[in-house]
Amino acid sequence: MNARGFAPHPAVRWLIGLAIIVLFAIPIVSMAEYTLRDATAGGHSLVHWIELFDPARAGTYRPIWTGLGNSAVLAVVTVAIVLLLLAPTMVLVELRFPKLKRPFEFLALLPISIPAIVLVVGLAPIYLAIGRTIGTGIWPLAFAYGVTVLPFAYRAIQAAIDATELRVLAEAARSLGASWPAVLVRVLAPNLRPGLLAASLISVAVVLGEFTIASLLNRQNLQTALVVVGKQDPYASVILSLLALAFAFVLLVVIGRIGGGTPRARRSARPPKDQP
């Protein structure tokens, strides 16, 4: 909208887009080609893909499906932590406690400088206690992931906050009779949506790619499962990496849908009943 004046020429945009697509396509296409190689018959075939669903080999692949489910649960809980805990806290700091902004930023960015190994050393006794009280289910691991995604989610949300006149909008809404929850849900969240969306996406990406913490805390997620299976069947490992990419892609699209698509699309698609 207001950035239109600075947008590059359409041809330049296409070129940049094309270059990026090619860059991403090369490894993905290579992976796909590898999974189609047929060592026994020579040439290419779907043999490795079919093996994946072979009931006789189901035992080998079972960890993958468990890991996939676990990672999905972790992604959802982590995104919930980002959207329901981090984002409202940041809004609160911005509006009510601006003096805490610097310390909060320092705290939020801190995890980026702490190696996962070090984090685990601190987390291990905590998760021992969690294991005894809440149980050894997978979802408490999302607390640790909430910490790892903190710097990325923080930056994404803060950028949106800085680009919005939060205070003016909140005060206007208050003067019009909105309660604080209404201010958050009806006014601030829609205007911070690009930032919230970006924070969610990056959180999902981080969670799906996480290996160290899960491995060292003896939890099974997608990455640990891929390593386990990859030791027995390298083809399966690459196929599943491909599938993981596709899965992440689908997840991002789903989250994008929940977010409501682009503002312009939402505007034209806005149902008339929403306008009193």
């Binding site: 006149e165 003016v168 909008l169 005060e171 206007a172 809404a173 003067s175 019009l176 009779g177 006014v187 829609p190 205007n191 949506r193 503002p263």
Partner: peptide, 14 residues
Amino acid sequence: DLGMVFQAYSLFPH
């Protein structure tokens, strides 16, 4: 129960 108009543009952009 007030109505308020601010100096800064304060319409909800969305």
